[in-house]
Amino acid sequence: MSKRPVPCTCLRSATSSKYSELDKIIELYKNKEGSLIQILHLAQEIYGHLPLELQQYIADSLDIPLSEVSGVITFYSFFSTKPRGEHTIRVCLGTACYVRGGKKIIERLSEILGVGLGETTKDGRFTFEIARCIGACGLAPAMMIDNVVYKQVNVNKLESILARY
């Protein structure tokens, strides 16, 4: 991942330059009927996620209600209103991993990261999620960080694994 997602606070301070990129996109699609989703795709590509301020800005620029923009964003799983971490940790909770202590891994990771499932750490480094079976049942419990699979994880190994990121 080359792009570091931008936390909401930055948006307020450095709005002008950030929004100018968005303005170009909106200008391109403004007069084309039904382009909201296209705009949102591109906006998310720039900003990493779609916070409320950004939604408001898009709504104003297209002259449509905020509720319409927000409604579309929350409908589709691809759009995120919260910033995502630089890395995504997915702990497997498929049957084999569940049985072999996946839950313990989640408890401990939650402690180390200081966030719950579905959340992103304050420093924006990790988003913490669960995964259904990732097909590493023989070496359960397993977890993935981005695309790397860590097999046979135990609570003692967690910190050293995270230290690599």
Binding site: I37, Q38, L40, H41, F75, Y76, S77, F78, F79
Partner: peptide, 13 residues
């Protein structure tokens, strides 16, 4: 006959 194509990308639904 005139014809053109556009791609629309879904968003995970």
């Amino acid at each position: 006959f005139a014809f053109d194509l556009e791609i629309r990308i879904g968003a995970g639904a």
